[in-house]
Design a protein around this nucleic acid. Structure first.
Length: 297
DNA sequence: GGCCAGGTGCGTA
DNA sequence: TACGCACCTGGC
């Protein structure tokens, strides 16, 4: 298992950067291509390197991978340790997670999971902001990724704070969206989801729903139940929010892709409980394998 | 022009 | 409990 370490840090025309080594088990491409996050776009896709840029946790950054490692442009060494190491889950031992994922099922299931883990190796579950994850996956329902991104971008542009470097916009707070009101949200092309976003924003802004308390909840069903009080939040949206924003790695979102992959490779759907806290990563590996197959590569 | 997209709520049996 | 169907919008 590779241990990620800082190679060096410095400034590039006034913009701070950190270079990381030991990133063999971290793929920028797969992490930002697996549909967990809607705020990053590819900015450099040349043969020898790959970059994505976007806003997370209120900061605008660029993540670049090449054969030497990963560079974070827009981050000091201090910010890496305080923010990005955790955001990217680079503090987590994925070797151990992969071991669980590939050994938890029966022989046939393990064979499938071994292939899935190979396909998805390098994916990291991002630790995103709880509110942003919740709101983003409400928007994602019955929707496609380009349009989800577009809606989130325009919501951020209109109701979010500008980032420090002035290159992007933070995701709007629940208070900002609650104050905007349902009609304003509808005007942002959110469609029938406007009332759902508004319901979520209002509950969070009013303190009726305490997202930090949900982060601290030990019991998954309790956390899921709390989120599902919101209109428009069912098991799938709750699972995505809990996995990508609330640190609940036992969450196992089942969507149309997962139904396809399950039907294709398993006699009967695997029981996510068997993966324990690794269920979310198992799900991501299966999901990624299915998308990879469908892209015909 | 109709169908579909990383679901959910609601009405009906 | 278990279905079927509508839902905003944009892209094909």
């Amino acid at each position: 298992m590779d241990k990620v370490y800082i190679i060096d840090a410095g400034n590039l025309s006034g913009v701070p950067y950190v270079r990381l080594g030991g990133t063999g088990n971290f793929s920028v491409f797969k992490t930002f291509d697996c549909g967990q996050c809607f705020r990053f776009d590819p900015t450099d896709t040349s043969v020898s390197s790959y970059s994505v840029s976007g806003v997370a946790l209120g900061h605008h950054v660029t993540f670049t991978e090449d054969r030497d490692g990963v560079t974070i442009l827009g981050s000091t060494e201090e910010e890496y340790k305080r923010i990005w190491e955790r955001y990217l889950s680079l503090d987590t031992d994925y070797g151990e997670i992969d071991r669980i994922v590939t050994t938890a099922l029966d022989d046939e299931g393990c064979a499938v999971m071994t292939r899935a883990a190979e396909a998805g190796r390098g994916i990291r579950i991002l630790r995103q902001d709880p509110w942003e994850a919740l709101c983003s996956f409400i928007i994602s329902q019955n929707n496609n990724i380009p349009r989800i991104k577009k809606i989130i971008f325009s919501l951020s542009e209109k109701f979010g704070e500008k980032t420090e470097d002035g290159r992007g916009f933070a995701f709007p707070t629940a208070r900002a969206l609650a104050d905007a009101g349902e009609e304003e949200l509808f005007a942002m092309k959110t469609g029938f989801r406007a009332k759902y976003i508004y319901d979520a924003a209002r509950r969070v802004a009013d303190g009726e729903l305490d997202l930090d308390a949900i982060v601290r909840m030990e019991n998954y069903a309790d956390a899921e139940g709390e989120l599902m009080k919101i209109k428009g939040v069912g098991p799938k949206v709750a699972a995505c929010a809990l996995l990508f924003g609330f640190g609940k790695t036992e969450a196992y979102p089942v969507d149309t892709w997962m139904k396809k992959v399950t039907a294709r490779h398993f006699k009967s759907a695997p029981d996510p409980k068997k993966f324990g806290k690794a269920a979310g990563i198992a799900q991501q590996y299966l999901f990624y394998m299915e998308r990879y197959i469908n892209e015909g590569k």
